[in-house]
Structure formats: structure tokens, C-alpha cells
């Protein structure tokens, strides 16, 4: 083979090493440039494609930035009322115990209005998988303070920074649900660098495989950026996330199954 290959000679299907998964539709993602939602969508769909679960998966879309997830994921989807995705997923899983059922939720959906549904679904040990994208802010509605907003963080409704005396402390819901006996696998990942994306993909694979064991709820938190809400460029917001979000929301497995 010649050392001087042209671009046309290299770009042929047999040399392809990475392409966008076919389980994402051709619709343009409605997320802001650099938002972690797109990567999170892609990882979940890649894993479902690799496991051949397209026909056996039912997803539940939340309310929030990812409200249109059913437009992007080429699988069976159901839209839930704000915060009620774990309750809807509970019903779906109980009716179709052989299907893989997951919810995809943001922090305003899962940790604010849906706290009750989330905690009780986890406490009941429902055999579903929850993907939780935490960016510490209400992104879709214009960057208001969320329960997960960091102390001192400026948002549209806390312009002088979150004051913990009057506004309380950020809710570490992932640590909270890890204490419940109904959860089986609880982990926190991020998707801002290639290494973290690879780790997050492995965690998503585990969360999907463990659902087949029928041992409880699997929970994957993805700490993400919200560059529009944080008023930064995508690269600045990723740096800010590393410096400020990760000390409060440390990455890694929080609860792993004992026998592994």
C-alpha cells in the first residue's frame, strides 16, 4: 500500500472506525452548542445499538431541555409529566417486565419537582434504569436556581450567588438514593473529555446489563455543563465544571454490587 493515500482513498466504508449511531434520528439536536446532553444521548443509544436492544427498549422522556428526547432517539419512547418519569417507567416495567426500561431526566425534573417519584421508585427497588443529567441549573427556562445549584453560584434567580442561609444547600440526590436498599448500582460520571466519555459508556453498559438481573434500580448521574445558563463558552464551562462541580459532586461509583 502506498504511503501517500489521498483523502478519498482513506474515507471508504471499510476504513471507518467511528460513526454516529443509527439509533439517533437525523433531526438536529435542539441543545446549545457544547451541551453534554447530546453526548449523553449518543452514549445511551450506542450501548443500546451494541447490545441489540433497539426493539426491546422503552425510554421515558422528561420535561426540561431534553423534553424532545423522543425526537432524537429512534426507539419506543414515552413522554412523562414533569418529574413523573420514574412513576411512568414503573408502570411500563411492571406491564412489560421483559423490556429494558429507562428514564432520562435532568436535575430540575429529577431532583426538584420529581424528588418524591425518584426517591420512592428507588426505595421500592423498581427494576428500571435512571439516567440523570445534572448541570446545576434550570437550563430550559432560562438558568434559574435549581436544588443542585452550588453554594455561591450565580443564576437568574440568585444573581448574588446562592446564599446557603436563605436558599439551603445543594441536594446530593445521588448519594441520597445510594443509601436506599432498593438501588443496585449507583454511579456518577461526566462526558466532557474522551476519557470520561469512555468511562461513562462503561457505566451505562453496566446499568443496562444489571437491569436484566432484576435486583433493583440502576442509577447513572452524568455531571454536565450548561454553558448558556452559566454564561460561558463550552470550553470555559467544562473547565468551570472541573474546578467547581467535581469537588461537590465527585465522579466515580457510589454503590456497586457486592458480588462483583
Amino acid at each position: 500500500m502506498s504511503q501517500l493515500l489521498t483523502r478519498e482513498e482513506i474515507c471508504v466504508p471499510e476504513n471507518e472506525v467511528y460513526h454516529r449511531t443509527c439509533l439517533l434520528t437525523d433531526a438536529a439536536l435542539t441543545y446549545c452548542p457544547g451541551c453534554g446532553h447530546g453526548t449523553a444521548h449518543r452514549l445511551i443509544m450506542e450501548v443500546i445499538e451494541e447490545m441489540g436492544l433497539q426493539a426491546d427498549t422503552i425510554g421515558v422522556a422528561p420535561v426540561g431541555c431534553s423534553v424532545l428526547a423522543y425526537d432524537f432517539m429512534d426507539i419506543d419512547m414515552q413522554q412523562a409529566a414533569h418529574g413523573r418519569a420514574p412513576a411512568v417507567a414503573t408502570g411500563i416495567k411492571r406491564l412489560y417486565p421483559d423490556k429494558f426500561v429507562f428514564t432520562y431526566q435532568g436535575d430540575g425534573d429529577l431532583a426538584a419537582i420529581g424528588t418524591g417519584e425518584t426517591l420512592h421508585a428507588c426505595n421500592r427497588g423498581e427494576n428500571i434504569t435512571i439516567f440523570f443529567v445534572n448541570n446545576g441549573i434550570y437550563g430550559m427556562t432560562g438558568g434559574q436556581m435549581a436544588p443542585t445549584t452550588l453554594p455561591g453560584m450565580k443564576t437568574a434567580t440568585s444573581p448574588f450567588g446562592r446564599d446557603t442561609e436563605s436558599m439551603g444547600y445543594p441536594l446530593k440526590i445521588t448519594e441520597l438514593i445510594a443509601m436506599l436498599p432498593g438501588t443496585y448500582y449507583v454511579t456518577r460520571q461526566s462526558v466532557h473529555t474522551p476519557q470520561n466519555v469512555r468511562k461513562a459508556k462503561k457505566a451505562i453498559e453496566k446499568a443496562i446489563q444489571y437491569q436484566k438481573l432484576n435486583r433493583g434500580l440502576n442509577f447513572v448521574e452524568i455531571v454536565s455543563n450548561c454553558n448558556s445558563g452559566w454564561k460561558m463558552t463550552p470550553l470555559e464551562s467544562n473547565k468551570w465544571m472541573e474546578e467547581n462541580m467535581f469537588p461537590y459532586y465527585p465522579l466515580g461509583d457510589i454503590k456497586v454490587p457486592k458480588q462483583n
Partner: peptide, 12 residues
């Protein structure tokens, strides 16, 4: 793999 929009296809 970091592209949020999956815009890049890679050949090798």
C-alpha cells in the same frame, strides 16, 4: 466521541 452532535466520522 466528545462531539455532542455526533458530527464527526473517523476513518483509519
Amino acid at each position: 466521541i466528545v462531539c455532542p452532535d455526533g458530527a464527526i466520522t473517523v476513518y483509519r
